[in-house]
Design a protein around this nucleic acid. Structure first.
Lengths: 203, 203, 203, 203
DNA sequence: TATGAATGAGCCTTCATTCAT
DNA sequence: TATGAATGAAGGCTCATTCAT
């Protein structure tokens, strides 16, 4: 067992690399971004990067596994603060809305989208993706919706699974368009409209 | 001096290359797919491909410029068949639904998504993309919605531009999730749900 | 035996190709110039060019074998017009001087130089080159010099072969510098100076 | 952050590549010589060569910028050793004469000639060439000649610039013929004759 | 651990030449 | 004879990864 300090150091270093890699991948795409790009950005040596990660792909996967504000883990905690299901859903939309100005939000969306594409081509990653989509994102929403049905907030004819899928698909689409069109896309307005529409459809 | 081969022959050849390229790009992604992959698939020679296209990117762009069932040009024509705005919107959802089984629909979506990502990084392509998004897709919907408002089908408080953006974003998101998760994604059900939700929100 | 007319036609065509090829080779160099360049310039088809020449190299060699104003064949005839050896030498310098303005003189020099380089690497061409240098160019001068010695115009201590070599080397060098530096090189003045110097050294 | 390898190491490596490239370029010409040829000769990896040079052309230019025994820099130093202008001129001829046996002299001349041709087609390189020809080679000779005129060694009617151009053109031509014809060319004799002729013309 | 030089497989593209029409 | 599409070998260059220091 290596000492804790060393482990912390490793973690800090990995995190640093991941952050710089995110920008590189967002800027050029995973394939087009080179290790040398990350080297330049992170001001680390090429060898160093390979002490912390086994391959470029490894950095990519680590980057996607990273905790973000919208990770389900974190999301679940946050949602506990609300009693109403509708409020919970409102809250999720608002989290996205609050990302609007964030400097690296578009970067994250781009990398996320590309990673989906990438993973859809790799059997192992694809399984992981499906697993995560199903058991994490979908389930978080399904729980909220079921809860809402029980509480009488949401009409019982709603198919939670379908509705949950629609929920995340819609957000994905909005984020994606935003990441591509940026200033030419009315991100916040569309999110607000989507929120109203989605909630209306549940009631 | 009449050309040895007809213009139609050239067009047929280009189309052939594009079709094989679509599969290759979908399978591996634009970057990872090699000209040799296209050579193998199309059973043409490498040189031949370069007689019809200037570069790999050129094939990519041609592929995206291709007329499809969902091209706005075609869409506008089709929409004229309907009187009601709501019916028009229903129709668009149904076009997508009808793609569900189509062999290369997922390929098309993947390539479309990746192209968006790709274009968002290239100033020239990006301008083209924004132009097209705005003046084609958005406007088609805006026209339908405005028409619906005039006809009293759609509530006048609707902001057509926002609603139009939401419409296409939602479809993009649904298609994207479908292309990534495939059998694990209830494409048709989600589309049906989205249709109901969207229409409800307009009334 | 094909009819004479057809042979003339072939010759005319070949000549045409050669002329366009000269410009292409001069502009880009033999290697960098492509058959397509010649196609574009000559407005013939690629296939046509290959009916008259077996290969790019073939055009190159034909181009070098072409009769020019400075070809020894032609030169010998011209020199007969002069009685004095010194006058003959003067005349040769003046031929070069008269090329100064000629539109394609620099092209010819460039192609000539490059062909020398090229031929020096190909055993067959190299033999041809040596043969031609020796038995043609050198001998023309040697004859003139020997004649001059006999006539008492040129001092008998002159080694004709060395002097002949020096003569052509000097001209080669002057032409070469001119072709490279063009307007920045005082071609005519240098030729005049060289003429004076060379003649002085013979007497 | 000290570099892992010293600057001298890098310089040594570059030099090594240049030396092998010289042979390759001389053997086949710049265009025909491939990076793989240099790889084979130098026994380095392809990637390695690209760590030290940006492109094939880059190696070519570096090769031409290299210090040689006949570089003006070096020449100027050497010429200081002589008081008499005539002696200086003699000395330059003798330097060339001393190259006669040198293993890579012919290679150098070939590459030099081809580079001139090459540079005459590239605007940037052409400017460099003209600059260098004028301000270096020509000026070295002009200085010697002017000095000689002042000292009464050289007749004052001589136009130094013309004479200087003739000087280098003549040497270029002699070297070029030698490089092409090799054993079939009486290099040393021609140089000796040229020396006598040139000096005689100055007095 | 840190560094960056070394490696070489792999890719896009070019182009001389062939050949069916 | 004329045309230009088809061919595929070959070449310059990149870049993920390794490894000696």
């Amino acid at each position: 067992m290596t000492p804790v300090v060393s482990e912390e150091y490793r973690e800090k270093k990995k995190q640093e690399i991941i952050e710089h890699a995110l920008v590189c991948f967002a800027e050029k795409g995973f394939q087009a971004a080179t290790i040398d790009d990350i080297v330049k950005r992170s001001k680390m040596s090429k060898g160093s990067i390979y002490t912390y990660f086994q391959s470029k792909e490894d950095i990519y996967v680590a980057l996607m596994n990273e905790k973000t504000e919208i990770s389900t883990q974190h999301l679940k905690e946050e949602l506990k603060k609300f009693d109403s299901s509708i409020e919970k859903i409102r809250f999720i939309f608002d989290i996205f809305k609050s990302q609007a100005g964030r400097s690296n939000w578009i970067d994250r969306v781009k990398v996320h989208t590309e990673f989906y594409l990438h993973a859809s081509r790799d059997p192992d990653l694809r399984s992981l993706l499906i697993e995560r989509a199903k058991h994490y994102y979908i389930n978080v929403l399904v729980d909220v919706l079921e809860e809402g049905k029980m509480a009488g907030e949401i009409k019982t004819t709603t198919d939670s699974e379908i509705a949950a899928n629609l929920f995340w698909s819609m957000l994905d689409g909005i984020n994606f368009q935003y990441s591509a069109l940026q200033d030419h896309y009315p991100y916040e307005d569309v999110l607000e409209e989507a929120k109203a529409m989605y909630i209306k459809s549940l009631m």
